[in-house]
Design a protein around this nucleic acid. Structure first.
Lengths: 250, 250
DNA sequence: GAGTGGTCTAGACCACGTA
DNA sequence: ACGTGGTCTAGACCACTCA
């Protein structure tokens, strides 16, 4: 249930010597955890014990363990110790990017068409969502994004009028709603959900797709300083859009 | 084109004083970049200049800038300097997890049914993919994952027989293919693509869904030490599955 | 050669959790 | 009271880039 510092020292000295010491220690620990020789919940030697057994300074040990902690391989608690973290399975990360950047990055032309940008009465659930007083309307925009003149995203967005009071006056053909909002309200937190759905007849018409075509729907909400800035439904024709990502193990 | 160290000092001393110094410096820099006051390519003061102007030790400055570099906000080059990184737009991260863990995490029962696990001749593209000699067969498994006895994923997987020679002998009702593979071949790199598609008639039958139901398809490939371990198609009924994620700005 | 970041050391003080 | 990690200091040597 506790890993011996002298075992760590043996592993450390048998490792290749070219990399920096903190990196070699990180690699050593990663390896033991990846292969299952050190198991969930086991306690690693304390920093001071590793200072003795490895002959490194505490700052170097600390950096290695801190970065392993940031990477999620170990859990550290001041006053308690360092422990092998629960096995995270093969989780992997996905990057969801700004649609305009993505299109430009492919070397293609991006264009938006604005269906409408308007003020609308907010019903009770929407008021709760945005934490708005009764009677306060909400902003609503519907925009189609084109890549090389092919519709790839229908962006249906509700916006908090208290955090983006000038939203209605923006020209979304020159700057996307996303761009505008991330400028005026530096986003803190966000969440998104990806689903496969069928589009409604109206959505099919705006995206110029057939009724049966499966679509990728991303619902995204972003907060700035703990207040909801915007909630968006981003609908993509399945045949014209996909999310891609890569990941590397720590 | 270059940021003044005394400006940084002014910002630093006007910030709240409770957090650790390296964190306050990180926050300060993040803020300037997020609000656009510091723009892409601008050079930050060197570590030694910040030591003078902030009155902190170089290790503290170094930690702040190193972590900002790891977070992608700045780019550092030894011998050159530290620069504001290219604006990444509002990219956000998605975590794709092991299906069994995910189900268990919801407090639900997970079960797999194995349609088949077998050896198959590998055609030229598959041989190239796995870097196999001619005549070498490939392993192929088809497994259905159930959450509370409802089919949520059809896992169609090709496996490199040279990296997982015992694959055919595994019991995938007790340990998922994913679990097994990540044990025997610690994964290095991976990539995945998410799409919305329609299932084939055979797939519809195995998942017990109607022909027109949109499905979320995740295609995932994982490498271990630069050799492809496995390529999988993970097909989810749109009505029964979605990807969720949260993100925080650095 | 001057300046940069990358790494490392040998101390130090502190807040925290456990006993 | 003790051991833990969290932070910080004031030095140091190195490899690297650029003029």
């Amino acid at each position: 249930m506790a890993i011996d510092a002298t075992d760590v020292a043996a592993l450390f000295h048998s490792s290749s010597g070219s990399a920096p010491a903190y990196q070699r220690l990180k690699d050593l620990v990663s390896e033991q955890i990846a292969t299952g020789r050190w198991t969930e919940g086991e306690m690693l030697p304390s920093e001071s014990r590793l200072v003795e057994s490895l002959g490194l300074s505490r700052m170097t040990i600390n950096r290695a363990l801190r970065e392993l902690s940031a990477a999620g391989l170990v859990v550290r608690t001041a006053g308690v110790g360092t422990f092998v973290a629960a096995h995270k399975g093969s989780s992997a990360l996905f990057e969801v990017r700004n649609i305009a950047d993505e299109v430009h990055h492919r070397g293609h032309r991006h264009r938006t068409e604005v269906a409408f940008v308007r003020e609308e009465p907010a019903d009770a659930p929407v008021r709760r969502l945005f934490d708005l007083p009764e009677g306060r309307p909400v902003f609503h925009s519907l925009v189609v994004h084109y890549e090389q003149d092919v519709a790839i995203q229908l962006e249906d967005r509700l916006v908090n009028p208290e955090l983006a009071p000038e939203y209605l006056a923006q020209d979304f053909t020159t700057r996307t709603p996303n761009d505008y909002l991330s400028r005026i309200a530096p986003l803190g937190r966000g969440e998104h959900v990806v689903e496969a759905v069928l589009a409604t007849p109206d959505e099919c018409e705006r995206l110029d797709i057939d009724a049966g075509e499966p679509c990728l729907l991303i619902r995204r909400r972003t907060w700035s300083q703990d207040r909801l800035v915007s909630a968006a439904r981003l609908l993509h024709p399945g045949s014209r859009y996909r999310l891609e990502g890569t990941f590397e193990s720590p």
